[in-house]
Computed example of a mutant assay.
Amino acid sequence: MQQSLDGIENPPDSTHTSLVKNLLSGVFLEPLLSDFLIIFERDPAARNWLEVIFCYPGLHAICLHRFAHWLHRRGVVFFPRLISHLARFLTGIEIHPGAVIGKGVFIDHGMGVVIGETAIVGDYALIYQGVTLGGTGKESGKRHPTVGNHVVVGSGAKVLGNIQIGDRVRIGAGSVVLRDVPDDCTVVGIPGRIITHKPKTNLSPLEHGKLPDVEADVIRSLLTRIEQLEQKLQTLANQAKESELLTKDK
Rank of each mutant, 00 (worst) to 15 (best):
R73Y: 14
P97D: 13
I95G: 09
F67K: 03
G98E: 14
L82A: 09
W70Y: 15
I38C: 10
F54Y: 07
Y56I: 00
F89M: 15
E94N: 10
F78R: 07
Y56Q: 00
I62R: 04
H60E: 07
L50H: 00
F78I: 13
T91M: 09
N48C: 11
V76I: 08
A61W: 00
P80Q: 14
P44Q: 11
I95M: 06
W70Q: 11
E51F: 02
L59Q: 01
F89H: 15
R73P: 13
A87W: 04
L86K: 07
L50K: 01
I95P: 09
H72W: 14
R88Y: 07
H85M: 15
G98M: 15
A46E: 01
R73W: 15
W49I: 07
F67L: 12
C55L: 06
W70F: 14
A87R: 07
I39P: 02
I38H: 01
R74E: 05
T91N: 05
A99S: 10
N48H: 13
G92D: 02
C63V: 06
C63P: 00
V77P: 08
I53P: 01
V100H: 13
A45M: 12
P80K: 11
I53H: 00
V76F: 09
A68H: 00
T91E: 08
T91F: 03
W49R: 01
D43Y: 04
F54E: 02
Y56C: 03
R66W: 15
P97M: 11
L71V: 06
W70S: 13
H65R: 10
A45K: 12
F54D: 01
S84E: 06
S84G: 15
V100E: 14
F40I: 03
H60M: 07
L71N: 08
H85Q: 15
F89Q: 14
R73G: 15
A61Q: 04
A99N: 09
F67T: 12
V52W: 02
W49D: 02
G58H: 01
R74F: 06
V100Y: 14
R73I: 14
C55G: 05
I93Y: 03
R47D: 07
F67V: 12
